[in-house]
Lab assay of single mutants.
Amino acid sequence: HYVEVNGKKIQATSAEEAEKIAKKFAKIYNATVLDLGNYYKVT
């Protein structure tokens, strides 16, 4: 599981952790979290 933010991949140990990381970055960048199955993308 990982999160992609601005083209950078951030490794996460679980889907739950990946979701938390994605939501945190989405809040910082006022962005949207896309759940793409095996990873989250912040756009």
Rank of each mutant, 00 (worst) to 15 (best):
H1A: 08
H1Y: 15
H1R: 06
Y2P: 01
Y2G: 02
Y2W: 15
Y2K: 04
V3L: 05
V3S: 00
E4I: 14
E4N: 04
E4L: 14
E4D: 07
E4W: 09
V5W: 12
N6P: 02
G7Y: 04
G7V: 01
K8I: 14
K8T: 11
K8F: 14
K8D: 07
K9N: 06
K9P: 05
K9V: 14
I10D: 03
Q11Y: 15
Q11R: 11
A12S: 06
A12K: 01
T13N: 14
S14Q: 02
S14K: 02
S14W: 06
S14Y: 03
S14M: 03
S14R: 02
A15S: 10
A15K: 15
A15D: 06
E16T: 09
E16A: 14
E16K: 12
A18N: 00
E19C: 14
E19H: 14
E19F: 15
E19M: 15
K20Q: 12
K20V: 09
K20D: 09
I21C: 08
A22C: 04
A22P: 00
K23Y: 14
K23G: 06
K23A: 10
K24I: 15
K24A: 14
K24C: 15
F25K: 01
F25D: 02
F25R: 00
F25V: 07
F25W: 13
A26Q: 08
K27C: 14
I28Y: 15
I28K: 13
I28L: 15
I28C: 14
Y29N: 06
Y29H: 08
Y29D: 05
Y29F: 12
Y29K: 06
N30T: 04
N30G: 14
N30Q: 09
A31H: 07
A31S: 08
A31Q: 06
T32W: 09
T32Y: 10
V33D: 00
L34Q: 11
L34E: 12
L34H: 08
L34Y: 08
L34T: 09
D35K: 15
D35T: 08
D35L: 13
L36F: 15
L36M: 15
L36T: 04
L36Q: 07
L36I: 04
L36V: 06
G37R: 01
G37C: 09
N38D: 12
N38A: 10
N38K: 09
Y39H: 10
Y39N: 06
Y39S: 07
Y39W: 13
Y39F: 08
Y40S: 01
K41R: 09
K41D: 04
V42S: 02
V42H: 03
T43L: 13
